[in-house]
Design a protein around this nucleic acid. Sequence first.
DNA 1: ATGAAAGCGCTAACAC
DNA 2: GTGTTAGCGCTTTCAT
Lengths: 347, 347
Amino acid sequence: MVTMKEIAKQAGVSVSTVSLVLNNRDEGRVRDTVANQVRAIASQLGYQSNPLASSLRTGRTHMLGFISEDVATTPYAGGIILGAQTAARQLGYMLIVVSTEGPQNEAQEIEALKRYGTDGFLYAKMSNRITNVPEALKDMPLVLVDATDEAGIIPSVEPDEFHIGYDATKRLIASGCERIAYVGAEDPIIAERGRLDGYRAALAETGRTFDEHLVVHVGNNEPALDAVNTLFDSACPDGFFCFNDARAWYVYECAARRGLTIGRDISVVGVDNHRVFADTLVPQLTTVELPHFEMGYWAATKLVSMIEESSLADMEWPDTTAPLPPLNAPVPAAIHCALIEKDSVRQ
Amino acid sequence: MVTMKEIAKQAGVSVSTVSLVLNNRDEGRVRDTVANQVRAIASQLGYQSNPLASSLRTGRTHMLGFISEDVATTPYAGGIILGAQTAARQLGYMLIVVSTEGPQNEAQEIEALKRYGTDGFLYAKMSNRITNVPEALKDMPLVLVDATDEAGIIPSVEPDEFHIGYDATKRLIASGCERIAYVGAEDPIIAERGRLDGYRAALAETGRTFDEHLVVHVGNNEPALDAVNTLFDSACPDGFFCFNDARAWYVYECAARRGLTIGRDISVVGVDNHRVFADTLVPQLTTVELPHFEMGYWAATKLVSMIEESSLADMEWPDTTAPLPPLNAPVPAAIHCALIEKDSVRQ
DNA sequence: ATGAAAGCGCTAACAC
DNA sequence: GTGTTAGCGCTTTCAT
């Protein structure tokens, strides 16, 4: 492994000079000819800085911790992680993902990450739950991903549920549906509220009146199927906006029983859950994908900006209303939802 | 952050002594009374070693790299990662997971991990594919997970496909099935061969003759459904061993069309893919789960043993034939497959 | 049995 | 402008 010492020797200068040059702190401190020579030798030798060694002096490891208990269970975690990792890499950071099981294990893992000197933390809780943030994280740079803290004080990146509902409903309207149902979730989770509002807004905007008979809130269980069955019979919808693919599944099942074909007799839009449905089994099912990659990407970007205390002004922050532009990874065409960034009073 | 220096000061000894004691290298070198006092002060002060600082001297960071391109796309990745992380933590290591996209990105990520001084690598490729191991990994301690290298030289941990097929088929036999079909995969992937062999072995063992009309190899697509349809009509199976849940799905669909109920008229065992089927939608579907957690766990254990060059003799290596005992995480009851560890000539 | 000293690779004051 | 010096926290000879 090639060190600054070697470069210094070859260039006939001191290590300090090499350090200055390689950290781009040489403006007006090191002669250009010397600086260039150092750079030349460095690249020729294939010099790679040793981040661990510098961390000893600077107190910055350029490592970010990513904490979540859903990594092992949720397929989405991958998208968020990939986004966060992409941003981290671009900014010169290393992302360390840790999946936890229960509070005491979580504390232990955070402890371990702190020992390794991570500069800050991403704390993710899939599907935007209100979250008790672990004490051990509160004194560190911290950004929540797909989660909200009780007090609403910590910076977070969340999907814009309103736009998801709005967009999905508008699509159904655009495809000619007259009686659009909303098959929502049972629990009063954050997403539910926003999506319903978006659904109503889209209806209102196109001069339709909200009809509560077209709305059901179901769990992920047996009674759900009955409820959707009843919905079919009592309200005769021709379009369905479903909270997720699992809910969309019930619609599919009920339609099949009635000999209705999705995409011809009725239209269905679901928000992604287990994408396998839409991908392989029910290709007629349209999904609105949650911007997992983007959430991770922006959360990591925000975190680094906090760590480096650079002003947020020069961050290209995502437009909260417009569809996101593709970042560096390919973004599925179906993404039509935006991010909101609930900025906070810094503690 | 409390350092050895502080402990040394409080104990009235030198840092070297503290280092000796805290690394358990004090046998016959440090007086017991002193050693005990040092330990007492250390724990009282809540001393935590700084792994980065020691790495500077020892060249060991106690960090393991986990490389895979499937993290973002496959739900299984989580299980493997969790297993690897659990083992790493127990052995005093930190797991750094990196998901890659394409070979050049992969090389870049490996490069980054090396700069951070990872002691060794886990290289995962879900569903046991034959793999070209990146050059950059070949000079490092390396264990493959759910993958095999072309030359069969690198240590790997893979599911025992034979036992999966054998076990699944035996279950169908035990539940009274007479005509057991195998709905396999189309591609000649490693798993396919082993599972088919297991299927045949189970049949042979119970005095049944192998009937090739009961076997189909299908993709994950439209024609698959037709093939399974034909299988139903031509061979009249009463039991199905399916390569994965997606294949099991076709069976479910065909059964539904014929008014057959799974669990009563026919029996189905699938190997897990998208577990959602068995969990929520088709509860009658029995799944054999792949030992993702265990694979990650043992792979990390093996890797550490290589890094520390401890003899493999004193490792509790898993029995390759018996069902795995539960490790530290809860293991689903459905696990009935074993791990094989293809040990290799060290380069 | 213990401590002094050197050094891992790098950064940061401070001389000159 | 550049080199010298000191030191981050820890390990490791090598004296004593």
